[in-house]
Simulated scan of single mutants.
Amino acid sequence: MTPTRTSYDVVIVGGAMIGSSVAWFLTDNPDFDGSVLVVEKDPTYEFTSTSHTNSCMRQQFSTAINVRVSQFAADFVKNFREYMGGDARVPQPLLQNYGYMYLADNEDFAATLRESQKIQAACGAGTKHMTRDEIARDYPFYNLDDIIAANHNLVDEGYFDGNTLFDWWKRSARERGVEYVTNEVVAMTCNQGGTRVESVTLKSGEVIHCGTVVNASGPRAVLTSRMAGIDIPVEPRKRYTFIFEAEKPLDRDLPLTIDPSGVHMRTDGTFYLAGCPPDDDPAVDYDDFVADHSLWEDKVWPVLATRIPQFEAIKLRNSWVGHYAYNTLDQNAILGPHTVVENFIFVNGFSGHGFQQSPAMGRGAAEMITYGAYRTLDLSPFGYDRIERGEKFVEKAVI
């Protein structure tokens, strides 16, 4: 598919959740009146992180800015139709508030949870620090022999229907004039000083001139950035999801429980969902979605049955492999312009947080493109300059 024009004010490379968020927020900004082209290689989105997400949302971070980012996401979901201009066609997405349950099996991690709870409370989040007795009172199905404390929050935290956001961002952006093409950016041409990308070349051969380039390429982000002579520490890492049925279902919702083993589990409708990284967690090929079937039998199921004895009798119903766009420096997003190539905008490296961070990050990227600065949340801690310095943005609550 070829674009209708030879020049656009903004070219977005990648049209899944993040790229469509940037596109929509640009159209929603009354001070932006430019043209936007979104280039997406696979219109089915079959192998994107968007299609493999567990669509979770949490306020439980150890840095205030990450809490604020998720708070905006929760508000956006709860008031989605209003944010979408009051369009009567827009449905109300589900936000299921069963919360996250971070279990601590040692005093150091319990202390980290206490510190994080104070930060979250200062931001207005409803996180509570719980003793083992309090956990047992509210959720008696856990085996807590090795657990000393936990953090839990039942306000704006759990599961949300992120695909509704994605579908309507894309639909609305198109209706407002954003052009989506099924194609692939294969090269970029910079000016003589290397300070601006002047054009992108598509796989179909067209050369498209651009005012701004947005890298929204998910796990392939470094392939896009290298076209502009830029390296970023983002690579694809496999993450596994398992859907299972319990012979004896729990009598209440299972919070998204982060076990000390690294396995997490939660209610998923009438079933349950579990997931984890592999023990050996290297970068993988961009097209490698081959499952390690031993992971369920050797790691996940034993942890489930130990933590929740009622899960000794369960049946695996479905499973899949997705890719994190994994930021190897600090597992946090890279957002905003490059320090030299000034019109190259990053929206990359979300490391599993992309769905819940997409409203704030899309809005922030749109503000940076329109004004050259952030106007709502100050998202500068996610800037590329820290990558250049090798300075980590430390977030202790990474799953």
Rank of each mutant, 00 (worst) to 15 (best):
F382Y: 14
P93R: 06
V90N: 03
Y159T: 13
A291M: 11
N191P: 00
Q357T: 10
V67H: 02
D9Y: 07
T267G: 07
V77I: 14
N343K: 02
R132G: 05
P236E: 06
V234S: 03
L37E: 03
K203R: 15
M368V: 12
Y326F: 15
Y384L: 04
D28N: 13
A187P: 07
S116Y: 01
S70C: 14
R81W: 08
H338T: 06
I135P: 04
S358T: 06
I243S: 08
E245R: 14
R137S: 13
S204E: 14
F244N: 05
P302N: 06
D281F: 12
Y384I: 03
F346R: 02
F109H: 13
H152K: 06
S49R: 07
G162Y: 03
A291I: 12
N29D: 10
G362K: 00
P381Y: 04
G205C: 04
T127A: 12
I147L: 05
D33Y: 02
F393E: 01
E107V: 12
T27V: 04
I230A: 05
D146P: 00
R237W: 09
P30A: 08
C276W: 08
T241I: 15
E179L: 03
F109P: 05
G218W: 01
T53W: 01
Y180M: 02
D288P: 00
N163P: 11
R220V: 06
A283W: 09
D167Y: 15
G322E: 05
S62A: 07
F80A: 05
V11W: 03
R220F: 13
N332P: 07
K392S: 11
G19D: 00
N97R: 09
S294E: 12
S351E: 09
T339A: 10
E312G: 14
M101E: 05
A16Y: 01
N151K: 08
G14R: 03
G262F: 02
P359I: 04
F76K: 02
H209K: 15
D268S: 15
Q120L: 02
Q310Y: 10
K315F: 09
F72M: 13
S51P: 05
M17P: 07
Q96H: 15
R386C: 03
L94E: 15
T267I: 08
Y159G: 08
F166T: 02
T6P: 01
F109Q: 12
V10N: 04
L26R: 00
